[in-house]
């Protein structure tokens, strides 16, 4: 079994587009979307049969039992997140602002404050005869965590057979969710973009991935939008000995086919470019 994780640091570089084309090209049977704050892979995934849905719980939040509350306001004074509001003669906790620290529970002389489970999102597993796709969706105001990413990956773990190729669309950024998404993968493919902000994000994500001794490959998407910066990315990769696996042009056809929910035509220019990136990537792990 080989696992390829696709990351970019910066959003909008074409991570999901590449992931979906990799799935088409390789006929991969197992894939996952760990970009749970803005999941998109399910929109083009061919596996439509929702098999399992499970709540994802974040940290518990606090709630005040109005029957026992003496309205002393001690909780209000101690809350550092301004999550306790006094309205209509009652102290209440704004669940959007509560971080679940438990200070109010502790200071309440009446013990009128307790924890309640907080549903921060849901885990979704799609399955048909021989394919499986795992993803999750976060609720508004909730943040991604290493825990949720690990759960998304665990959902497909038992389904992976020996020769499967697993493709994972990773979260943006370089934080804890990204690190969690790296566990067990054979290679990280980074999708770079030739812009000043894209380059600085690329360097940060390379640093994170190398600290885990992971094999790294880099492709440049929309390379023709700025050939000068594309050249400087390639030079940077060469100097530092990172595998460069290809260039993909900015081509409206790629987006058109995604919007239609269809795979790119074999033999078309974008297909050939992505296929080359795919072949080069696979050759690094076989």
């Amino acid at each position: 079994m080989k696992q390829i994780l696709i990351l970019s640091g910066k959003g909008g570089t074409g991570k999901t587009t590449i992931a979906s084309n990799f799935i088409n090209i390789s006929k991969a049977k197992i894939f996952a979307d760990c970009d749970v704050e803005a999941p998109n892979l399910h929109l083009i995934s061919m596996v439509k049969n929702l098999k399992e849905r499970e709540n994802y719980y974040g940290l518990d939040k606090s709630v005040i039992d109005q029957e026992q509350c003496l309205k002393c306001g001690i909780c209000y004074d101690h809350c550092k997140f301004n999550a306790i509001v006094y309205k209509d003669n009652q102290y209440k906790i704004d669940l959007h602002l509560c971080e679940g620290c438990g200070v109010c529970n502790y200071v309440c002389p009446q013990k009128a404050i307790s924890f309640v489970k907080s549903i921060d999102g849901e885990l979704l597993l799609y399955k048909d005869e021989d394919r499986a796709f795992s993803t999750a969706k976060l609720n508004m105001g909730s943040g991604n965590s290493g825990l949720l990413v690990t759960r998304v990956k665990k959902n497909i773990h038992e389904l992976i057979r020996k020769d499967d190729l697993v493709i994972i669309d990773g979260p943006p950024g370089i934080g804890c969710p990204v690190i969690a998404s790296m566990s067990g993968v054979n290679l990280v493919l980074l999708v770079a973009e030739p812009s000043l902000s894209g380059i600085s994000d690329l360097k940060r994500i390379i640093k994170t991935a190398s600290s885990f001794h992971l094999k790294i490959a880099v492709c440049i998407n929309k390379y023709d939008l700025n050939k000068k910066l594309t050249q400087s990315i390639i030079e940077y990769l060469n100097i530092n000995n990172y595998s460069f696996v290809g260039l993909i042009s900015y081509d409206k056809e790629i987006i058109d086919y995604i919007n239609l929910g269809k795979p790119l035509l074999e033999g078309s220019k974008p297909y050939k470019e992505i296929k080359k990136v795919f072949d080069n990537t696979i050759s690094l792990i076989s």
Binding site: T16, A38, N40, L43, I44, I255, I258, N259, G261
Partner: peptide
């Protein structure tokens, strides 16, 4: 942006602004 990804993400923020 006018892609199905863009639309899906737009719906998410739209919901937030409505709340």
């Amino acid at each position: 942006e006018p892609t199905i990804f863009g639309l899906h993400n737009l719906e998410m923020v739209y919901e937030l602004t409505q709340v």
